[in-house]
Design a protein around this nucleic acid. Structure first.
Length: 320
RNA sequence: GCCGAGGUAGCUCAGUUGGCAGAGCACAGCCCUGAAAAGGCUGGUGUCGACAGUUCGAUUCUGUCCCUCGGCA
């Protein structure tokens, strides 16, 4: 780990942005121009056999550019930020060794952040413990978890809303496993690592144009067979409770297939939820330090955007 | 033309026995350290169709008019 006083010199180019902004296509062009590969930072594309719903580029679309960090696990295998980061660091190290500029591209803000600024090396999820906690919460009332957190880690309790079950459970889990409050560990870590010299580019578009692209992309995924893909996954025993099946697209299609709502509603909700997701991504990336935004207009071709990025990268590499 | 129903938030509608109007959705802002496409928080001034009347006070009652949707001609 590089300390704050040594200036990192190993370059890392990162392209982030909301879903449907056009990252994948542009990234392939940039990677080609730079003679490198694409490292995908996407928490959904890590799952094998989930292709249409996660909008993985096809072999033809990849144009011979190798893509890494996708298809890492089966849909029922646990995956998490830490696993992603370890594999990402390994790929980055390899590319540096080969004299290539690593290019990290994706929309999962947390994954990108842990590569750029580190991750507190705490214990991974203990699903057994979580299940037991949830069960106890079932009998002792909904606010029992929160009250317990107030006792054990008041700082975390102050930062979390009583309704935020997922994060309350994680804080309790860490305290249970380590005997120390999560809030202290996070405060100490503070995302202060800086292993690379980063160039951080955020792709964006005008909001209504972005939302139009979201709707179009949903329609395209449906036309490509999102429903059939979902059915295939369910038939293979990947149930709705799995984290991978809670992703956009699969969640709505599975709900419809189970008879919860009709097809038109499933599509409407998928579009809505994807728009909301894009909005949340924008909120996340907005506060990523050092990020420079690159807004592309509707008329601008992916080639033109890629060219602007490549120019930026060349300028950046000269400064190292 | 007549009869009926209705005109309230961007949309669908609720409501006020007359007292500064409220839900869902849409949308906007935000939080986030091994589930992160997950999970969570916050945000509602809108000529209550127009004009006049009654009233301390009208979106609510009365009258006239305008518009929309049905039905009958």
């Amino acid at each position: 780990m590089a300390s704050a006083t040594t200036v990192p010199t190993k370059p890392l180019v990162v392209i982030v942005g909301p879903t449907a902004v056009g990252k994948s296509g542009i990234a392939i062009l940039v990677a080609k121009a730079l003679g490198t590969e694409v490292l995908t930072a996407d928490s959904r594309q890590v799952y094998r056999d989930m292709d249409i719903g996660t909008d993985k580029p096809t072999a033809a679309e990849r144009q011979g550019v190798p893509h890494r960090l996708i298809d890492l696990v089966d849909p029922d295998q646990p995956f998490n930020t830490g696993a992603f980061r370890r594999q990402a660091l390994a790929e980055i190290a390899r590319l540096h060794q080969e004299g290539k500029v690593p290019l990290l591209v994706g929309g999962t803000g947390l994954y990108v952040r842990t590569v750029l600024r580190g991750l507190w090396e705490g214990p991974a999820a203990d699903w057994e413990f979580r299940r037991a906690l949830e069960q106890e919460a079932g009998t002792k009332g909904a606010d029992w978890l929160y009250r317990r957190l107030v006792q054990v880690d008041p700082e975390s309790a102050r930062r979390l809303h009583p309704n935020d079950r997922v994060k309350i459970v994680r804080a309790l889990e860490v305290h249970h496993l380590l005997g120390r409050p999560l809030s202290e560990e996070h405060k100490r870590h503070a995302f202060a690592e800086m292993p690379f010299a980063p160039l951080l580019i955020g792709l964006t578009r005008e909001r209504t144009a972005l939302y139009r692209r979201v709707d179009e992309r949903v329609e395209l995924e449906l036309a490509k067979g999102l429903m059939e893909e979902t059915k295939r996954l369910l038939d293979r025993g990947y149930g709705r409770h799995l984290g991978s099946m809670k992703g956009l697209g699969y969640k709505q299609m599975a709900g419809h297939l189970a008879g919860d709502y009709d097809y038109a509603e499933a599509v409407r909700w998928l579009k809505r939820d994807t728009r909301r997701f894009a909005k949340r991504q924008m909120t996340w990336f907005r506060k990523e330090p050092g990020l420079q935004w690159l807004s592309s207009e509707g008329a601008e071709s992916p080639e033109q955007v890629a060219e602007r990025i490549v120019d930026e990268v060349r300028r950046f590499l000269r400064t190292l």
